[in-house]
Amino acid sequence: MIDPLLNKIIRPPLALAAKPLVRLGITANQVTVCGFVLGMMAVPAIIAEHFDLALILILLNRLSDGLDGAVARQTQTTDAGGFLDISLDFIFYSAIPFAFIVSHPEQNAIAGSLLMLSFTATGSCFLAFAIMASKHNIDNPQYPNKSMHYMGGLAEGFETIVVLCLFCLFPENFIPIALVYTAACMITAAVRIMTGYQTLNRLN
């Protein structure tokens, strides 16, 4: 919901942080993969109930997700890099609620599964519209530097990061947090489907 504004704020410091990485010859794809590995390490940390460690790993993953784009802009942006970035992001997002399900399946299974379902809903319509937007050359002025069309919504990247962090800060409240964010994601998916359909229908 506030991703466009947040991107404008954090882009300059990320650009500064990316410069030494570029000088060392570290590529954007290497940052992406490293960040993904760090993020996935949060899964066993959550299962073992080391929530402070999991929180740090999640934040490092999100920092890497910003740095890879900054490195790419200072070197070379590629469709392959954009594909890798978004693919690993979606895997990571679902891995965190999965970890909470595994840690306490009796109490977390339903809420966690609903949240993963809502992630599938938001992600599928997001990616489906991105394909159609590329086909029809639909502009995306809010995200001009992204490798694909980004549909906005109530639940976007920043909100998802906040929720994943809240899980680690307040693991005993996983269920209500998950259910509230499931509702936000479902609203986002519904709006994306309606606006996406209307936009594409006008082009026929």
Rank of each mutant, 00 (worst) to 15 (best):
M1P: 15
M1S: 15
L5M: 15
K8P: 13
K8C: 14
K8D: 15
I9R: 10
I9T: 11
I10L: 14
P12N: 08
L14F: 14
A15D: 12
A15G: 12
L21Y: 05
L21I: 10
R23M: 14
L24H: 14
G25Q: 08
I26R: 01
I26T: 01
N29T: 01
Q30I: 06
V31E: 00
V33S: 02
F36V: 07
V37M: 09
M40S: 03
M41Q: 10
V43A: 01
V43I: 03
V43K: 01
V43E: 01
P44H: 01
A45V: 07
I47R: 02
A48H: 08
E49I: 04
H50R: 12
F51L: 05
F51R: 04
D52E: 15
L53G: 14
L53D: 15
L57P: 14
I58C: 02
L59Q: 03
R62H: 03
L63E: 03
S64L: 04
D65T: 08
A70P: 14
V71L: 06
V71A: 05
A72F: 00
R73N: 12
T75S: 12
D79C: 11
A80R: 13
D85P: 10
D85W: 04
I86A: 11
I86G: 13
D89Y: 07
F90T: 14
F92E: 00
S94G: 15
S94H: 04
A95T: 00
F98K: 10
F98E: 11
F98L: 15
F98D: 12
F98Q: 11
A99M: 03
F100V: 04
I101T: 07
V102D: 05
V102F: 04
S103N: 05
H104C: 08
P105E: 08
E106L: 15
E106T: 14
N108F: 02
N108Q: 03
A111H: 07
L114F: 10
L114S: 02
S118E: 06
F119D: 05
A121P: 09
T122W: 02
T122L: 06
G123D: 08
G123Y: 04
S124L: 15
A128R: 12
F129L: 06
A130T: 06
A133I: 03
A133N: 04
S134L: 11
N137L: 05
N137T: 10
I138R: 06
I138D: 07
I138M: 09
I138S: 07
D139E: 11
P141R: 01
Q142C: 04
Y143V: 02
M148L: 05
H149Y: 15
H149L: 13
E156A: 11
G157W: 03
G157A: 01
G157C: 01
E159S: 07
T160E: 05
L164C: 00
L166P: 08
L169R: 05
F170C: 13
E172H: 14
N173F: 07
I177Y: 11
T182Q: 01
A184P: 07
A184Q: 03
A184F: 12
T188S: 06
T188W: 00
A189W: 00
A189K: 00
A189P: 08
R192A: 02
R192P: 02
G196E: 05
Q198C: 11
N201S: 11
N201A: 12
R202P: 08
